[in-house]
Write a protein that binds this DNA or RNA. Structure first.
Lengths: 187, 187
DNA sequence: ATTATTAATTCTACATTGTAGAATTAATAA
DNA sequence: TTATTAATTCTACAATGTAGAATTAATAAT
């Protein structure tokens, strides 16, 4: 039942060292598999390391979560500019929600951290697409706010799994199309 | 520093008894004042009672939170039917968000509980208004989903206070008007 | 009246969390 | 060789929700 106590103090160089990225990778895989943010102790156990070792690499749990979040920006759709704007925005939204679904529990981190993360990237890429639409700056911002908050609301519901059974990402199609209708009036 | 230990066991009838509604009232006022859900111990302290006494009236913390949520349905705007639909929907949204702002932290409870609460009431009243618009049933549902998730996303951001400084409820005006634009195409 | 049951309460205790701070040991610099 | 720094484990604490037992009064049964 009990595990042999590990030797204390700094380990020999021969043994592979813990690192920022090893922790990140493990945390991400646990997040994916368990569908929720792991406890530090759990993460440490999986890394076969004491919980406090993690604090040598991250100031606190939130810093770790922010690091995870910002490592995910690459998973967001990159607009191509050779497809209709509706398709582009839909793909962008879909990839954003996919991320929030696959890494359940990160929504709060993403929204409360001011630093570089998927939310900012989403916003940037959205603007990049709407720039081609000739909206007024004010309208563009309004459109962005409506969409972003809608997606976060959807993601939040997904996180809580309120709707019957699985929440499918495709469920955004209807609302997004309605949203497109609104945008069309302004371009 | 320390308080005199209270007498154990069932108290005399003369002393005013704890009750469901006393607990609720106190919890609501703490929620309002502190801007976050109180810990059971904190609530108990304010009631000058042991923490476990609360569990005589509520099965667990979540049951208490659900009770709070469902006690708030009265604060949601009651559509009048003698004002334009946009005004009605705006008032409805505003009152819903006001509630979510005043009782910060309840969003999750409201969305995860299937029982009677502000979310259901909102949805009902929204349908009541859109029934006068002659939308197809499918469109009505889509419109509801877009709006509800938008509001929840907004509320979530409010809860985390992401935006600079205070988040004002009036910030929904732009997005809501854009949304109205979308609805107009269907009626 | 006495006794048994039920109701309202406090107490003690546990598991789970994040994480501060000290101790330990190896690597590296002086 | 010694001093310093780095990487780690250990111990411990505060906060949380809450299970379960003990206690006492009210009420029901006899």
């Amino acid at each position: 039942m009990s595990v042999k106590p590990k030797k204390r103090g700094r380990p020999f160089n021969s043994s592979k060292q813990l690192s920022n990225s090893i922790i990140l990778k493990c945390a991400k895989s646990m997040l994916e598999e368990e569908g929720k943010i792991p406890a530090i102790r759990g993460l440490a156990a999986k890394l076969n390391v004491d919980a406090m070792a993690i604090y040598h690499y991250f100031a606190n749990k939130n810093a770790l979560l922010e690091a995870i979040a910002s490592s995910l920006v690459t998973e967001i759709y990159e607009p191509k500019n050779d497809r209709p704007w509706k398709t582009e925005i839909y793909s962008l939204c879909y990839s954003y929600l996919k991320l929030l679904k696959d890494y359940n529990g990160l929504l709060e981190t993403m929204l409360s951290s001011t630093c570089f993360g998927p939310s900012n990237v989403f916003t940037e890429k959205f603007s990049q697409i709407t720039d081609t639409l000739g909206l007024s700056p004010a309208t563009a911002i309004t459109a962005r706010d409506l969409l972003v908050d809608y997606l976060h609301g959807f993601a939040f519901a997904m996180q809580l799994n309120k709707r019957d059974g699985e929440i499918e990402l495709e469920m955004i199609k209807g609302p997004i199309n309605l949203y497109f209708g609104a945008l069309e009036k302004y371009n």
